[in-house]
Design a protein around this nucleic acid. Sequence first.
DNA 1: CGCTCAAGTTGTACTCTGCAACGGGAGCGG
DNA 2: CCGCTCCCGTTGCAGAGTACAACTTGAGCG
Lengths: 145, 145
Amino acid sequence: MSAAQTAIETIQREMTIFARRARASAGRMHPELSLVSYTLLGHLEERDGCRATDLAAHYALDKSTVSRQVTALERAGLVERRPDPEDHRVQVLQLTDAGREILAQVTQRRRAAFQERLEDWPEEDLTRFARYLERYNARADADSD
Amino acid sequence: MSAAQTAIETIQREMTIFARRARASAGRMHPELSLVSYTLLGHLEERDGCRATDLAAHYALDKSTVSRQVTALERAGLVERRPDPEDHRVQVLQLTDAGREILAQVTQRRRAAFQERLEDWPEEDLTRFARYLERYNARADADSD
DNA sequence: CGCTCAAGTTGTACTCTGCAACGGGAGCGG
DNA sequence: CCGCTCCCGTTGCAGAGTACAACTTGAGCG
């Protein structure tokens, strides 16, 4: 097997390990926010609000799933539904202050965990690793994986 | 923010994207084998058989979860349970020929997908990316994430 | 108006998961 | 040998996450 082949095998294996671990640890690390909820809140912050359908499309989730997730987030007071004056079918989802705060907390905790794991990496390796990941995900995006 | 900080932010973000995507796509890509089942079969192949408790400990799963997964894999004919002659509490799990075959098929399909995404990467980048991932996961392992 | 489409909700079912309780065997001190 | 404790695995139960299908409501258009 060529060196490239070996490297691809390794990448596949390590990515799988990471995915499995992320899935397993997400619940334990952030009991207040599942990986999906975290992602949805992040999306709302980034876009400063959007529709439920947009979330469903962007994350390849069923609209019923998003509906229930949003219901839970609303019950928890992290998200607000605002009727869209231009289209009464639509509800615009917005982070509440509490939602913004929780999101910031979880992000901070995640950041600390990553930082600890990466603390002894040389800066050059960090930036290269970051570039590789972006590149990989951009390509996977295009493949609509 | 320093360059290292920025890189860490990016790594965190991209790893999250990857984890979410892996979770979402696993079911669609390999209907016959969930990510967990795939991992368990892989472990059995690699170790040439082991106990259910070992799987649970290694993947931070509850033993009941492993028990049910193994039951399903056994029903599907991919795994065999063999009583341990030295300790009647223990059952040694072994891949069947069918299990080995399915595992090889799914691995092959995953490999093709990765290969396609990485086909235009220079070999040097591939090997470095692989090294980074191994290093990251090894550290996360130590943190028992 | 009436048809069609879009946004969200709800009913239903299934999977994955963990916790708790249990059964059965192993190992050990008396 | 007996009884206690620990370990391995199963099962009952509950909860989260998800998808699919049917439905409600509203928009757009001829």
